[in-house]
């Protein structure tokens, strides 16, 4: 039995940063990159299931989509207990949105035939919380979002999950497998990947695939396969106000100045 855990390499910003020249994202020079925190919980959930099962019966496969910079993220996942890592890359992926990414994940899921797909509830940089749900929709599998507890015996026909609702309510759901679950923070305590383990994970091969390998056409991936497009990323200007003081004629003069400034 396999568990597929799609992971994302997320960016965190410096206090001071600059935007990319096209104004559609932050200049990566000003970012530190790391494995998405939500995905760490999803991965830990998968590894715990593996460890509770007889040895060799559960395989945890991590998957990421992006250029080879993302290998670090996969190595960290391998160090934390994943068995295999897959990276899908293509030059045309640049403008992919969540749905375009989900299409790739879904294809990998079709190939790998996991019993569960465990995603992080959202990414810590963009926070759309859409990828996991899109994967489920594309596969036509049952799905539960923002899972805070999971009971699953590998190979069972269903899993029991809990979600936290408002007012301290807990919703318990039985879901048929294979299913896609998105995992909430705090479901467990992700383990530390020591540097030694990460280094040793360097020795493990990362399987690299292209969308073509997966049977996806250029029209289905990247910007062409996306349903949305980022127009602009910006820091909104702070509202300005000024108390105009002085004699009425001075005030009038200042007012004129401002009008001219704004009209520019």
């Amino acid at each position: 039995m396999k568990i597929l855990v799609p992971v994302k390499r997320v960016a965190s910003l410096d206090d001071e940063f600059e935007l990319r020249d096209d104004g559609r994202d932050v200049d990566p020079d000003f970012c530190e990159f790391d494995l998405n925190e939500f995905d760490e919980y999803a991965l830990e959930t998968a590894v715990l299931i593996k460890e509770a099962a007889p040895e060799g019966t559960v395989e945890v496969v991590v998957l990421t989509i992006g250029p080879d910079d993302a290998d670090d993220t996969l190595r960290k996942a391998l160090a934390k207990g994943a068995d295999r890592a897959i990276r899908v890359d293509d030059a045309d992926l640049g403008d992919a949105d969540r749905v375009a990414i989900a299409r790739i994940i879904a294809k990998v899921a079709e190939q790998e035939e996991p019993g569960l797909v465990l995603c992080g509830a959202q990414s810590s940089d963009f926070g759309h919380a859409q990828t996991g749900m899109s994967v489920a929709a594309l596969l036509g599998w049952p799905r539960v979002a923002v899972v805070s507890r999971l009971d699953y015996a590998p190979g069972a026909a269903s899993a029991t999950v809990e979600r936290e609702l408002e007012g301290g309510l807990v919703e318990r759901i039985e879901v048929e497998t294979p299913a896609v679950l998105t995992i909430q923070l705090g479901i467990n305590t992700p383990r530390y990947a020591s540097l030694r383990a990460i280094k040793q994970a360097n020795a493990k091969a990362i399987e690299s695939r292209t969308p073509t390998d997966l049977g996806l056409s250029t029209g289905e991936i990247g910007g062409a396969g996306a349903l949305s497009r980022v127009r602009r990323v910006y820091v909104p200007e702070r509202g300005k106000s000024e108390m105009i003081e002085g004699t009425p004629s001075q005030q009038a003069a200042r007012l004129l100045e401002i009008i001219e400034e704004v009209q520019g």
Binding site: E32, T189, Y192, S194
Partner: peptide, 21 residues
């Protein structure tokens, strides 16, 4: 113990931060 992740979570976070930054 560190290699097995057998440590305080605050310590884990700090080591993670050092690894990153």
């Amino acid at each position: 113990m560190v290699d097995q992740g057998n440590m305080d979570s605050a310590l884990q976070r700090t080591l993670g931060a050092i690894g990153k930054t």
